[in-house]
């Protein structure tokens, strides 16, 4: 068997293909890979009083020995986990309803579930303040019927949780409804036929089929929540604060870019963990 050398036309087509790929790859390297490497290098080479930058984990030692930084990391993790839990509790029943219900009401519910996608976070934050903030609509209504005011979640850790849950409902519902497309009506009916009641049906038949979608929701949501800024900044407490506002304040107000980079590196490590979880879930699904 003989192999023919590629013709000039085939070679030029290959070159065009490489050029087309080169643009996004170059942008990715410039805008993402380089800042990561640069940030890691800066975080691990703190500037000494004499102006030198030897390799040292001192910035990370400082971060993990600082109670305020740790409480900020703690509140970020707490917010992410509580938000994720609430999202799953709210969105799984909603997605199940949208998947299996028929008729006009289901269409209205779907429209309502997608609505937050079209509301900018800042508008949502101010709507939240007007409704749930001190002397907001809820307080006014309670006052009108002679009831005491609520303990407003505004400027407490629950403020960002409520805002982030509302903000993340559309994407979560979309991912789950898409996953539920893999569950056929007949598979559900077959389970009911052999005696499965709703909860058993969900646990043994539906959940195993949508597990990949749930894993995608977990990883996407956690990645998004870790990098959330507007809602934690406007609705959350000043202290402790989530990593987003903390990094911005360290960088902008305290003018300490090295520590801000250290905080970003710690945040990135958590995000990488969820990124790996996502990749594994998708790979496992492809392998099936």
């Amino acid at each position: 068997m003989t192999t023919r050398p590629p013709s000039g036309r085939a070679q030029s087509r290959g070159l065009i293909g490489l050029l087309l790929v080169a643009v996004p790859v170059g942008l990715f390297a410039w805008m993402t890979v380089w800042p990561i490497i640069s940030g890691l290098v800066q975080a691990f080479t703190p500037t000494q009083p004499n102006g030198t930058r030897p390799f040292s984990p001192a910035n990370f030692v400082e971060f993990f020995s600082d109670p305020y930084s740790l409480s900020n990391l703690g509140v970020t993790l707490w917010t992410c986990l509580v938000t994720l839990g609430l999202l799953l509790v709210i969105c799984i029943p909603l997605a199940l309803y949208l998947r299996f219900a028929q008729g006009r009401l289901a269409a209205y519910v779907q429209t309502m579930a997608m609505f937050p996608m079209f509301v900018p976070s800042i508008i949502l934050a101010f709507a939240f303040i007007r409704v749930l903030g001190p002397n907001g609509t809820v307080d006014l209504l309670l006052n009108a019927v002679g009831l005491p005011k609520i303990r407003s979640p505004y400027l407490t850790p629950w403020g960002p949780v409520i805002g982030l849950v509302w903000d993340n409902i559309p994407l979560t519902v979309l991912i789950l409804v898409s996953g539920l497309g893999a569950v056929s009506n007949q598979a559900v009916e077959a389970a009911r036929d052999v005696g499965a009641r709703p909860l058993t049906l969900f646990w043994y038949i539906v959940l195993p089929r949508i597990w990949t979608s749930v894993a995608v929701v977990i990883s996407f949501t956690m990645l998004g929540l870790f990098s959330a800024f507007t809602l934690p900044y406007v609705l959350g407490p000043a202290s402790p604060e989530m990593m987003g506002p903390f990094m911005q304040r360290t960088f902008g107000d305290l003018r300490d870019p090295e520590m801000a980079l250290t905080q970003a590196t710690v945040t990135m490590l958590f995000c990488i963990a969820f990124g790996i979880f996502y990749v594994r879930a998708v790979a496992r699904n492809r392998g099936k």
């Binding site: 007949q186 598979a187 009916e189 009911r192 052999v194 009641r197 195993p208 089929r209």
Partner: peptide
Amino acid sequence: PEKRPTGMVFQSHALWTH
């Protein structure tokens, strides 16, 4: 359906693939 003494075989088999 879960309380009826019937057993149904569906056109698409409807097996649980997991």
